[in-house]
Design a protein around this nucleic acid. Structure first.
Length: 193
DNA sequence: AAGAAGATCAAT
DNA sequence: TTGATCTTCTTG
């Protein structure tokens, strides 16, 4: 499994390098094909800028912890907490899309959706398909083989940087990372508004 | 106490 | 393009 030391860096590096790894939860797994970085400093879109509760969370949890929250009252979104060893500053990596790998029948049931392409092609869909929700908030991705990242994903992926999706501030930062030409991403390269 | 905004998704 | 649905934060 990827150790907590991996997340003791800035969130942009973590987000970029998570692309191509494999996310595991129980019997389900998928190759990470899209992520976004959110940083404590210089990023007004980050919850660490807008939400006191997120700052408290970052202070009381170690790097590699899941930060899971409900968005629009409907969708759970899964993040990983990062803390730079050098600077001490924090950030999050939002998991935005996977290429389904294992446990696909269960993912289809959770999503009520049989089209492989539509299973994990967005942060809300990904969390729903993988069964990640409220109960995972505060759990470490680095302590159990049944909830973690592994390096046995894909090594031949070319990763591109692009603007982030669905935010109203700090739109110019190219902190979304996606697998080049992959059909399973939430929004194709260059189509972010 | 009440209002607004929000890292989305599926249906129209 | 819109409605669904609720938590968090801000304002009064």
């Amino acid at each position: 499994m990827i150790p907590a030391a991996f997340f003791e860096r800035d969130p942009v590096s973590c987000a970029r390098e998570l692309v191509g790894t494999k996310l595991i939860h129980g019997s389900c797994s998928g190759i990470v094909i899209e992520t976004e970085a959110y940083a404590e400093h210089g990023d007004e879109a980050c919850h660490l800028f807008t939400r006191p509760s997120a700052r408290a969370f970052a202070e009381t949890h170690p790097p590699g912890t899941a930060y899971v929250y409900l968005n629009y009252g409907l969708h759970w979104l899964a993040n990983v907490l990062c803390k730079d060893r050098q600077t001490g500053s924090s950030g999050f990596v939002l998991l935005r899309a996977l290429e389904p790998a294992g446990g696909i029948p269960l993912m289809k049931r959770r999503r009520k959706q049989s089209d492989l392409r539509a299973l994990c092609s967005g942060p809300g869909k990904l969390a729903q398909a993988m069964g990640i929700g409220k109960g995972h908030h505060g759990k470490s991705y680095c302590e159990s083989e049944t909830f973690c990242f592994r390096q046995d994903g894909k090594t031949d992926i070319e990763t591109l940087a692009d603007r982030r999706i669905g935010i109203s501030s700090a739109k110019e930062l190219e902190w979304r990372f996606l697998a080049k030409d992959h059909p399973g991403v939430s929004v194709p390269f260059g189509k972010a508004r």
